[in-house]
Amino acid sequence: MYNFEYHEPSSLADALSAIGSAEDGKLMAGGMTLIPTLKQRLAQPSDIVDLAKIAELKGIKREGNSVVIGAMTRHGEVATSDVVKSAIPALADLAGNIGDPQVRNRGTIGGSICNNDPAADYPSAVVALGATVITNKRRIAGEDFFTGMFETALEPGEVVTAVSFPAPEKAAYMKFRNPASRYAIVGVFVAKTSGGVRVAVTGAGACVFRQNEMEAALEKSFTPDAIKGIEVSADGLNADIHAGADYRAHLIGVMAKRAIAACG
């Protein structure tokens, strides 16, 4: 690991000024992606600004029909939160199946969505539930936040402060896990919301995407059988040592059916 200057601000304002005055600063949340990247010398930031001591970025609260989760909330806290479990059990379930217990004790929702790994779990929930990503500058619709592989709508120096998830009528997430890392080879989040049915797919493409054909079929009948005839094309899907594009296309259908069945 190359050396860097370490900052541990206790307010968002101090974090913004530290990142603003750094030559090539990097924010750190749980470090579960950033530290492995630094260890491999794939990045050489001049400064690291640790968000861990900023109280305003932490915690889970219910606001009307939504659950608002602070950016620095750890996966393990989301998985065991009574607020999340009662309002959006599928989200608690998703968080409880990220990586392993030690990753869940450190990794955060803000770090996960800002990193936007093509195989990350949270982006599917953000898109399917129609969540809003809140930053120090603005509110971004979940769907507009993820712009490509490891890319987001964030501007330089912009910090995610929270994610607001409206509670759905029904929702479920199913992932076909990579047997080694537990990242999603394919993960499908299905949600029946007041704004309609949304199906978000992670792991299969460069970044999370909606499966419109399934959504249309499920609007008519919210049953696994409703999507039986839909052929998912393998065009543009990921192919790597873990799974080919055809196999991923097939898994989208299988995971979607299981998720719909799990919605009950």
Binding site: Y6, G31, I35, A52, V103, N105, R106
Partner: peptide
């Protein structure tokens, strides 16, 4: 009180 991977956290953290 919580288990973590000590290879993936800085001493300063």
């Amino acid at each position: 009180g919580k288990s973590i991977k000590s290879c993936t956290i800085l001493a300063v953290q």
